[in-house]
Every structure is written in structure tokens, then in C-alpha cells.
């Protein structure tokens, strides 16, 4: 499986996937830390976190997959939602909580 196929498989087989720098417990970047805090603030008990620093192919590949130059990147139900700025705006407006609820209901 090439990296693009592998990434597609990852985001379509897990309801909520966050590509980040570091881990949720030990984020290596302020933007990734904020993304984790927001997902936790949505009441999400667990989500799939992928540390792009662990694999240069994933770090580059995910930027190409979404055509988006930065990390973190959030995917819900296989759809690219955005980075930490978009997550923040959607959290403040309540949209992200609504989106996350639909995932919980589907599980």
C-alpha cells in the first residue's frame, strides 16, 4: 500500500483522526496541543492521534493528501475538517461539538 492509500485507509476507518506533532499527552507544538485540548473539550473520550514526527513519510504524505501545508490536521468520518485555527473557530461557534456528537451517535 503506498502512503496515500494508507492515509486514506486510516482516515476512513477511524471516526476521528488527528495528525499532530507529538502525542496527546506530550504534544510537541502549541498548535497540536490546542487541537488536543479542543477535542477533549468536545467531550471526546478517545480519538486516533497520529504523531507525524515519528514518520517523515506520513508528515509529508498527509500534507499532500489534504493539499494543506500545516499540522495539525483533523479528519472526521474521512473528511478533512481543518487545522487548529478552523478547529478553534468551529469550537467557539459550537459547530465542532455538533459534528463530534454525530460521530458518537454513529458508534
Amino acid at each position: 500500500m503506498d502512503i496515500q492509500e494508507a492515509l486514506r485507509h486510516t482516515v476512513t476507518t477511524h471516526p476521528v483522526v488527528l495528525f499532530m506533532k507529538g502525542s496527546p499527552k506530550f504534544p510537541q507544538c502549541g498548535f497540536s496541543a490546542r487541537a488536543v485540548q479542543i477535542l477533549q473539550g468536545c467531550g471526546l473520550e478517545s480519538f486516533t492521534a497520529i504523531d507525524v514526527l515519528a514518520d517523515p513519510a506520513v508528515r509529508q504524505g498527509i500534507k499532500e493528501y489534504s493539499n494543506w501545508p500545516t499540522i495539525p490536521q483533523l479528519y472526521v468520518n474521512g473528511e478533512f475538517i481543518g487545522g487548529s485555527d478552523i478547529m478553534t473557530e468551529m469550537y467557539q461557534s459550537g459547530e465542532l461539538q455538533e459534528l463530534i456528537k454525530t460521530v458518537g451517535a454513529a458508534e
Binding site: N67, W68, P69, F80, G82, D85, I86, E89
Partner: peptide, 10 residues
């Protein structure tokens, strides 16, 4: 959309 705005900036 938010995504489209940021893509335009990038």
C-alpha cells in the same frame, strides 16, 4: 468556507 479561505491564503 473556512477551508477555502485558508487555502487561498496559503
Amino acid at each position: 468556507s473556512r477551508l477555502a479561505r485558508q487555502r487561498l491564503i496559503y
